[in-house]
């Protein structure tokens, strides 16, 4: 069995869906910034760096899609934990529906024979 080629992801593609993924992960469980990055890595997005995620968290919080709270830590300074607000959950639902709608079209186009496209 041949080893799988490393998957190269388009940064622009990831940029478009990252806020949705952040909201989805935080909907499952609140996290602080660096922990969220490790969760994204664990989900398979190994190329995502903190320098990409922190601005997304900042923007989502500014837009009222995330709320945060400081939690004391034994391992260092207090951590800022983020969780979706009601507006964030609504935005996630819209983004989720949009993504599946777009993915269905993309899958259809990619699956169709060349002459039918």
């Amino acid at each position: 069995m041949e080893p799988e080629a490393p998957l190269v992801r388009d940064p622009q593609l990831l940029k478009g869906v990252l806020p949705m993924l952040v909201l989805a992960l935080l909907e499952g469980d609140e996290s602080y910034g660096y922990e969220l990055v490790t969760r994204l890595h664990g989900a398979g997005l190994t190329g995502v760096a903190t320098g990409t995620v922190y601005p997304v968290l900042t923007r989502l919080e500014r837009d009222g899609h995330l709320a945060s709270r400081l939690v004391a830590s034994d391992a260092g300074p207090a951590r800022k934990y983020y969780r979706p607000t009601d507006a964030g959950r609504a935005a996630l639902a819209v983004a989720n529906a949009s993504w599946h709608s777009l993915a269905a079209v993309v899958d259809h186009v990619l699956a169709a024979p060349e002459e039918e496209r």
Partner: peptide
């Protein structure tokens, strides 16, 4: 700064700053 401090506690400052780009 809060995020850097939290990441520093997890992986150290050199890695925390390198990850930020």
């Amino acid at each position: 700064r809060e995020n850097i401090d939290a990441a520093t506690a997890d992986v150290g400052l050199p890695t925390a700053l390198a990850d930020l780009g």
